[in-house]
Nucleic acid binder design. Sequence first.
DNA 1: GAACACAGCG
DNA 2: ACGCTGTGTTCT
Length: 576
Amino acid sequence: MLKYSYITSADKLQRVYQNLKEEKFLFLDTEVSNNQIRLVQIAGKEDIFILDLFDIGQEGVLFLKNFLSDKGIVGHNLKFDLKHLYRYHIEPYAVFDTMIASQLLGNSERHSLQSVAMKYLREVLDKSLQASDWGQPFLGKEQLEYAALDVKVVRDLFYIFLQKLNETPHKEEILLKTRTARVFDLTNPVAIVEMAFVQEVAKMEMKGLPVDREELEKRLKEQEKELQKKVMSFISRYRTDPMSPKQVGELLTRRLGLDLPRTEKGNVSTDDKVLAEYAYHPTVAELLEIRSLKKNIEKLQEIKEKLKGSRIYPEFKQIGAVTGRMASTNPNVQNIPRHLRGIFKAEPGKTLVIADFSQIELRIVSDYVNEEKMINAFLQGKDLHRYTASIFLGKPEEEISKEERQLAKAVNFGLIYGISAKGLVEYARTYGVDLTLETAQSIRESFFSYYSTIRAWHERVKRELKDYKESRGHTLLGRHYVAHTFPDAVNYPIQGSGADLLKLSVLMFDAELKKEKIEANLINLVHDEIVVECEEKDAERVSQLLLKAMKSAGKIILKRVPVEVEVTIKERWDKD
DNA sequence: GAACACAGCG
DNA sequence: ACGCTGTGTTCT
């Protein structure tokens, strides 16, 4: 039977202290009832203590606050526990999350404590007691045993994960000497970053995003009125529901005579790509407008429903994509239509500081494959789209027209995905450029002849996929991936390195804030963009620190290419 | 209830 | 073509 000490009074805390004071980190779990922490289980290498905060009261909280302020904690899905601990102003010195560790070691499986315990310890965990009543006056023996077992399992997992993370080949040239690294003896840079990042995500979820409710209502009414008008008019003229893809397909092909492609299931395809080609057709234009209005309204309504006071509190999945990117839900605040972002407004007396990396994926590509010509263009501060255009059009950069630059933009981005000539024709069209297949072919050829390292990289990946049916690799920080198709294989390292860069930037920004004792809160992260809310008086300094952090992170992740960062201070999250 | 289509963001 | 989430329609 598992041994543990159940601590229900303040005079026993001294014993806990004596037992655990020498440990650099502790294993921790909490049980929560009605949003209040009932139990905090803490364990060292040997003993397990269960602190009952309902019984011990304020002194227990104070004890944890002091005791944990210079200790690391190890737990499973610590975002949950941290959000509760922070409310009591308990902030541990460093964090190691066994759920994140499991995700870093293999992204395909489930990562609940139950699944992970089964996989790595062959231990069957009964989680049925998790949902038991943790608020009742006297907890049952089974409940306490369950609580103790959770930390024990986490402890067993930790030593396995620490070893596995440190022994997986990783970048030796990137040495992150952070508290996370020191406390847990972690050497794997990706793990060091992800573990520390857990605290950032927990804080960000607690802060939420500030909404200008009046502005939200105003825009909602506007858009609803507009949509109603448009839909009524559409139905009365065409006897067709513009919301039904099936009916729309019929209308466009049978009655308007458009020649639209079909989906695999035989339906007429009416998606944006298809309709973009016929945007000149008034009916199609109308349709696109209706769809976009509808989307806007849905988004606004979702935000309205989820308002608590004048903020929304979205959830963030720290590793939401295989590449290491985050994902957001409830609501998704990473896909708010750009022209609606103005509804997010800093609370009175505060302002937003918004920073984003410019053309970051292209910079990453050039650094990743060490493409000399592209790197030099970046080093000289050139506009890469203009530069690329001048290469395949064979004329000086000053003579590149707006349209030609657009085309080069399509080419530059297309290359990341290993685009075909046919693909380039289609892709260029979404940038408003018409190409023949022959032109596309010749552009592609001159592009790859000029940027020959990119061609070599693509060839190498194709070869790998042929020979081994998979392509394994790692991002610039050392995040491992396995890809099974060509587009995945060329995308993962680039998108993944972008995720590395953003996460490291946030951590370095936090470190700067701590140094200067300035308070500023992270409120959103959108792949290459950081949104912070702070006091108006601090905004100037915060923007400097954010810029500094992002540039320093760039120097760590990229070997040669400089990053460019745009920072703005304004009360709303929109373009000017 | 699952699968698909569509649309928003990077 | 890459990565995501949310909503509504259509299919089984």
